[in-house]
Computed example of a mutant assay.
Amino acid sequence: MAEVDTTLQAASEQVLRAGANKALRPSIAGFFDEATFTVSYVVHDPATSEAAIIDSVLDYEAASGRTSFGSADRIIEYVTSNNLKVKWLIETHAHADHISAAPYLQEKLGGKLGIGADIIRVQEVFGKLFNAGTDFERDGSQFDHLFKDGETFSLGTLEGIALHVPGHTPADMAFIIGDAAFVGDTIFMPDFGTARADFPGGDAGQLYGSIRRLLSLPEETRLFLCHDYKAPGRDEYAWESTVGQQRRENIHVRDGISQDEFVAMRTSRDKTLAMPNLIMPSVQVNIRGGRLPEPEDNGVSYIKIPVNAV
């Protein structure tokens, strides 16, 4: 007899409860950053105004090495104008394509910074790659909270549950809040497919299993995606889908596509993909909870670029 996935069962029951009761559904605002094709979210409970900020973006100009806060300030303006109370700053994983603005937002708005518990595996791999030394702790202590699979949390009167969905990286998490699932870099819009699985610690077979786990949620579950790259033939960016739509239409992982077929496709496709433009600064900063490396004796922080190591 197959083992029952009690976490998935609990998440499905939560979605169904929210589907039957509008008071259990979150209000959601998406903020698209075209420079990195990233969508950040502010999710809040209409009854209590408690909010979570998911996958924020710090603006970074690679040529000059300068940071700025335009994307984060848009979120701050939304939060303050709606009198929201930030309880959580959530990262679905340690992103390789943009730098997190969580520390800046935390300073301005409060809240606890959370990420998946397997961030320690990512810290270990990239700590070695960047020769971060013994001063860089590889225990997740840069974050306020490490979410485990099946862990429940609240956002005001709303129910939330964390799902471990590895494959893109070992630490990817999806967060189900009410009837909405914030799925990070697992799945994209149906016409674009799925995330890559060739980063250190990535695994296409694991990613397939994680996606099929997500797609076992009720068909009406709303899926909020971390990126959109506007597939050929589509004029507008989009980042909201449903489980049902993905099961019917996703070009990489719709119903009927086997794990072997997916792994063969993903492996072949990933070999053709260039590394993200901001992977070196992004990963270096994001494994530190969005904080820059400690300044050197001249007061300046430096991003390392390993040569011929990736």
Rank of each mutant, 00 (worst) to 15 (best):
S282W: 02
G202Y: 04
D228W: 02
R17P: 06
Y229A: 05
A238H: 03
T157G: 10
G19Y: 13
L89R: 09
I54N: 00
I90A: 07
I187C: 03
L146G: 05
S40Y: 09
M1I: 13
P293M: 01
A2M: 13
A10C: 14
L155E: 10
H98T: 10
R248G: 13
T36Q: 08
Q284N: 12
D198M: 06
N308P: 07
L158H: 05
T152M: 12
K230T: 12
A309F: 09
D172W: 03
T6S: 13
L217Y: 10
H98Q: 09
G65P: 00
T80N: 11
E220H: 14
G178K: 02
Q246P: 01
N82C: 04
G202P: 04
V310C: 06
A171P: 07
T272K: 13
P281C: 08
R266H: 06
Y104Q: 07
K304I: 15
T272G: 05
T6V: 13
Q245D: 14
A10G: 04
N21I: 12
I28N: 05
D45Q: 09
A132T: 12
M173P: 01
P293F: 01
R196N: 14
A309T: 12
I90V: 15
A23H: 11
I54G: 01
E50W: 10
A171F: 07
A180T: 14
F175I: 04
